[in-house]
Computed example of a mutant assay.
Amino acid sequence: MYPLEEILFLCISAVLSGMDDWTSISMFGRSKLEWLRQYYPYRHGIPSHDVLGKVFAALDPESFSQAFSAWVASIAELTGGEVVAIDGKTIRGSDNKAGGKSAFHVVSAYASGNRICLGQRAVDEKSNEITAIPALLDTLSLEGCIVTLDAMGCQKTIAGAIIEKKADYVLMVKDNQEELKEQVVKVFGMKPAVEKEVTLDAGHGRIERRTCQATDNLTFLDDREDWPGLRTIAKITSERTDKRSGQSSTQASYYISSLNAGPGVIAKAIRSHWAIENNLHWTLDVIFREDAALKKKGNAALNYQIIAKMALAMIERESESKLSKPKKRQRAALDDDFRSILLAAYF
Rank of each mutant, 00 (worst) to 15 (best):
Val83Asn: 03
Trp274Tyr: 07
Phe338Cys: 01
Asp242Ile: 04
Gly203Trp: 00
Glu164Phe: 02
Glu290Asp: 11
Arg339Gly: 09
Leu140Met: 01
Phe64Met: 07
Phe220Glu: 14
Arg206Glu: 13
Glu77His: 14
Glu125Gln: 14
Gly262Ala: 10
Thr157Gln: 12
Ile130Gly: 04
Ala159Gly: 08
Val83Trp: 04
Val265His: 06
Ala57Leu: 10
Gln330Ile: 07
Leu59Cys: 15
Phe104Ser: 05
Ser248Glu: 14
Trp71Met: 13
Lys174Leu: 14
Met172Ala: 15
Ser65Gly: 09
Val173Trp: 05
Glu178Ser: 13
Asp337Lys: 15
Gln177Asn: 08
Ala293Gly: 00
Glu82Leu: 00
Gly99Gln: 12
Leu200Lys: 09
Val147Ile: 13
Glu143Ile: 00
Glu208His: 02
Val15Phe: 09
Lys191Gln: 14
Pro192Leu: 10
Thr237Arg: 11
Phe338Arg: 04
Leu284His: 05
Ser248Met: 13
Arg240Tyr: 02
Ser141Ala: 15
Thr148Val: 05
Pro61His: 15
Gly246Glu: 13
Arg329Pro: 00
Asp337Cys: 08
Glu178Asp: 11
Ala76Lys: 03
Ile116Glu: 04
Tyr254Ser: 05
Gly100Pro: 05
Ser238Asn: 10
Asp285His: 01
Pro263Val: 04
Glu316Met: 11
Leu4Ala: 12
Met314Asp: 06
Ala311Pro: 06
Pro192Gln: 12
Trp71Leu: 15
Ala214Leu: 03
Arg240Ala: 10
